[in-house]
Amino acid sequence: MSSSMRVSKGSLLIAKPFLGDPNFERGVILMCEYNDQGSFGFVLNQVTDLYLGDVLEETIYQDVPLHLGGPVEKNTLHFIHRRPDLITGGSEIMNGVFWGGDFNHLKTLLNFNTVSHNDIRFFIGYSGWGGGQLEDELNQDSWIVTQTSADFLFGTHPGNFWREILRSMGGEYRSIANYPTDPRHN
Rank of each mutant, 00 (worst) to 15 (best):
L44V: 12
R184K: 15
K74P: 04
S11L: 03
I29M: 02
L134G: 03
S116W: 07
N23E: 10
Q140Y: 13
M31L: 12
F112H: 15
D102Y: 02
F98D: 01
D54A: 06
R163W: 08
G159M: 12
L86A: 04
W162Q: 07
G131K: 05
E58R: 15
P183N: 09
M169H: 04
G101T: 02
G159D: 13
M31F: 01
L12N: 07
D141W: 03
G53V: 02
D63S: 11
E73A: 09
T76I: 04
E135Y: 07
L13W: 09
L134I: 08
I87N: 03
Y34Q: 01
R82Q: 13
R82P: 04
I93M: 04
I87T: 09
G90W: 04
L134A: 08
Q37A: 14
V64C: 12
M5N: 11
S149V: 09
A150K: 11
V43N: 00
H105R: 14
F79G: 01
E172A: 14
Q147G: 12
E25A: 13
E25D: 07
V7K: 01
N95A: 08
S127V: 00
T76F: 00
D54M: 07
A177M: 09
T108E: 13
L44A: 09
R121D: 02
P17Q: 08
V47T: 15
E57F: 07
E73N: 09
F112T: 10
Q140E: 15
L19R: 00
D63V: 11
P17V: 04
G128D: 00
F42Y: 06
G101C: 08
H117S: 10
D151A: 11
W143M: 13
K74F: 00
D54H: 13
R26N: 15
Y51T: 14
D136M: 13
E137W: 08
S116V: 11
T48S: 14
L30N: 06
L13K: 06
P65A: 12
D36G: 04
Q147T: 15
L30P: 05
D141C: 10
L77N: 08
I120E: 04
D49G: 12
G69T: 03
L106K: 10
T181A: 05
T146F: 10
I14C: 09
V55T: 10
N45M: 12
R163P: 05
L30I: 06
W143S: 12
R83N: 12
D136F: 02
S8H: 15
D102V: 06
E57S: 14
E172W: 02
V97N: 05
D21E: 13
L44Y: 01
S11D: 07
V72Y: 00
I120T: 09
L66R: 08
G38Q: 00
G41Q: 01
G96P: 05
N118H: 14
P84C: 11
N75R: 15
I165F: 10
N23Q: 14
R6M: 11
L106Q: 06
E135N: 09
Y61M: 12
G69Q: 01
M169Y: 05
V47M: 06
R26G: 06
W129E: 10
